[in-house]
Nucleic acid binder design. Structure first.
Lengths: 200, 200
DNA sequence: TTAGAATATGAGCACTGTACAGATTGGGGT
DNA sequence: ACCCCAATCTGTACAGTGCTCATATTCTAA
């Protein structure tokens, strides 16, 4: 896609910031997040080791940018669900969440790194996340539950848990497989819990 | 607790492996996982930079040991729930999961790192995790659901999602607060989903 | 007692994050 | 058209890191 590692004839790169982010995501998905270093990414973009520091103050800021981008795309996805789907909002939301995690595994991995969750240090991540939460609230607006916010958080947690576990291949030996369709997952989960709720 | 940074009069440390793990966990909880380096941990244990390599082949192995220890303790917790509690298994399980995440935030953070989930490279983590899944299955053995395994995974995912989100303080601006009691969380979640299930 | 296994040391290599001084260039005001 | 400044990029430098290895010390089992 981008001019990975190629020589440049111009002194300025032109779109370095974007390419640094893209190269990082590519690296995360191919070789794991451990191999994402500013120097490596710079090399990948065909640029000197110091160049990234004109776009990101440090390594954490680069990862933050990826996380923020992920949250913004997720927010857009959720809003799209609200506009297109006529089905029940709750299952659609969880499915949307799972789809996102599968489509952007690199972003998803970074979005939930504990070391990036200090709002002070990474306000862009924080605001992008609140954007996603906003989309969530809008989507559930029509559902009549006694506790809107609580329901939203619960569905978010459910989706997040399912996505994390399936992405890490940590459920491969259980009932849920990575290649199970998102619809199946969602349907099964809601059915199961509903059968359970009366008895607690 | 341990002899952090103190001089030793004996040439051999005596219990270096354990202290390396403990020091790492302490570091993760105080300064974040980013500041856990083998050299730093070695310094913390009052030992030379090369010493850890007689106990762990590399940095990932040290983190793996922490993860495995976490999974084993979680498995024990779940089994304890099965032995002591007479309440409904499902809410008790989720509460147990949340309690663990709050009590051992350092372990929890490491347990779900994507880069440690390749079973080939970290068989100890894998087996400890299966131990925890085993405890989960035993706990739910009496619950009559049409799909035992599915129910287990769903509850696991729910607990995992809730724990992740609250640990990261990423729900502080929503309905769920870190200082909410686990019981409240669980109760609310199950109530909400049950109210929802009929309509999908 | 003594050989060998286990453990610890310290030096060394390649790499990393980050800082900084100097080179290059694109764009706005004259 | 010019010039100047701010943005961008280069190259070098330094401390800290993972990991290796030859060497030193101690524990243990025979």
């Amino acid at each position: 896609m981008s001019t990975t590692g190629k020589k440049r004839d111009t002194y300025h790169h032109g779109a370095l910031r974007t390419e640094l982010v893209d190269a990082s995501v590519r690296l995360i998905e191919s070789e794991g997040i451990g191999s994402v270093s500013l120097r490596r990414v710079a090399r990948e973009a065909g640029v000197s080791p110091g160049a990234p520091y004109h776009h990101f103050p440090n390594r954490a800021a680069l990862l933050s940018a990826i996380a923020a981008q992920g949250f913004r795309e997720l927010a857009a996805d959720i809003d799209a669900v609200g506009r297109t789907t006529r089905a029940a909002a709750a299952p659609a939301l969880v499915r949307c969440y799972l789809d996102f995690a599968r489509r952007r595994p690199g972003h998803f991995q970074v979005m939930w790194r504990h070391e990036l969750s200090e709002p002070e240090k990474h306000p862009d991540v924080q605001s992008a996340m609140e954007e996603a939460f906003g989309a969530l609230a809008r989507l559930l607006h029509d559902v009549d539950a006694e506790d809107q916010a609580g329901l939203g958080t619960m569905l978010w947690a459910l989706g997040h848990g399912l996505a994390s576990l399936t992405l890490d291949h940590q459920l491969d030996h259980t009932a849920l497989k990575w290649d199970t369709t998102a619809d199946d997952l969602v349907e099964r989960c809601l059915t199961l819990v509903s059968g359970l709720a009366g008895r607690s």
